[in-house]
Design a protein around this nucleic acid. Sequence first.
DNA 1: CACATGACTGGAT
DNA 2: AATCCAGCCATGT
Length: 108
Amino acid sequence: MDKTSFFQDVYDVVRLIPKGRVTSYGAIANYLGTKGSSRMVGWALNSSIGKDIPAHRVVNRSGLLTGKKHFGDPNRMQELLEKEGIKVKNNQVQDFDKLLWDPIKELF
DNA sequence: CACATGACTGGAT
DNA sequence: AATCCAGCCATGT
C-alpha cells in the first residue's frame, strides 16, 4: 500500500469481505492506516462500480446503505445484500453489529 | 498551486 | 437524544 493506488488497497480489502458479512468505511480506512479518511474509502468504492468489487457489503457505521444510489439502481444494493442472507430494512442492515466484519479484528 | 467535492466519523452544542 | 460542525485524505478542475 505505498505506490499502489488508494483504490487498489480498498478493492483488495472489500474483496476479502466474506459473503453474508458487511463492514464500515471507517473499519476499512482504519485497516489501511488512513484512519479518519472514511470518505476516501467511499470515494474509492465509487470507482469500484463495474468491477468485481462487492461494494454492496460496505455500509456506513450505522449500517445504512448510504452508497446504494451509486449502484446505478438504488434497489440493486439491497437486493444483493438480501441475496447473501443479510436482512435489510429501510436501507438499513439488520443485525449490523452481528454481521460487521472488521478487517482489523478478522485479518490482523 | 489553491479550492471544491465526496458512498464518513466523531465530538460538540 | 437529535442535530450541527469540523476534520479527515485523495482526486479533479
